[in-house]
């Protein structure tokens, strides 16, 4: 169960102070895929910190997300090379197509969108990855195909 995961993580940090906040957040995200309000409440109680503070710290870092990942998790690279090769257009198109802002997940939990700084594949710029699979030299047209592909996969799976 989800809650048991958080309890296990907190048990591993028993007696910890506020300096354990970030490791705890990382482990919670690792286990649950995101930082839920419930998790923040539990961590707040455990570390005796205000929930607003924990949310404040977590939002300072790009690595934490606050919505569960979708079945298809899109990562758009906004590193220098991808930027030069037009990744802003790719991101704009993707936000439009998926009707999502970076960090959000669609209501049906099918898609989620994240912006990353560099994926280390600058030769393939602009790069988009879906669930870890890389798509090179992405254009708005190619994006439509990728999204279509995802939707089809979903149908086949059902």
């Amino acid at each position: 169960m989800v809650t048991a995961d958080i309890d296990n993580i907190l048990n591993r940090h028993s007696g910890a102070g506020r300096d354990h906040l970030i490791p705890i957040l990382q482990e919670v995200q690792e286990a649950e895929g995101y930082i839920s309000p419930r998790a923040v409440a539990k961590i707040a109680e455990f570390l005796n910190l205000p929930a607003s503070k924990i949310y404040g710290v977590a939002t300072f870092y790009n690595q934490f997300r606050f919505h569960p990942k979708g079945r298809f998790h899109f990562m758009v690279c906004r590193g220098t090379a991808c930027h030069v090769k037009g990744s802003q257009k790719v991101l704009d198109e993707l936000t439009k197509q998926l009707k999502l802002e970076p960090g959000q997940t669609s209501r049906d939990r099918l898609f989620s969108l994240e912006v990353v700084a560099c994926m280390g594949a600058c030769g393939l710029a602009p790069v988009v990855s879906v669930n870890g699979e890389f798509y090179a030299k992405v254009t708005p047209r190619k994006l439509m195909e990728i999204i279509q592909e995802c939707r089809q996969k979903e149908v086949v799976d059902v």
């Binding site: 309000p37 923040v40 205000p50 929930a51 607003s52 503070k53 924990i54 949310y55 404040g56 939002t59 300072f60 870092y61 606050f66």
Partner: peptide, 26 residues
């Protein structure tokens, strides 16, 4: 401690946990 800084840089703002309304905060 109902409110704190949220986010960073040009996106920083002040808000409650999960940026909910003051009415559901402490």
């Amino acid at each position: 401690a109902a409110i704190d800084f949220i986010g960073r840089g040009s996106r920083a703002k002040i808000g409650t946990a999960f940026d909910g309304g003051l009415n559901v905060s402490s």
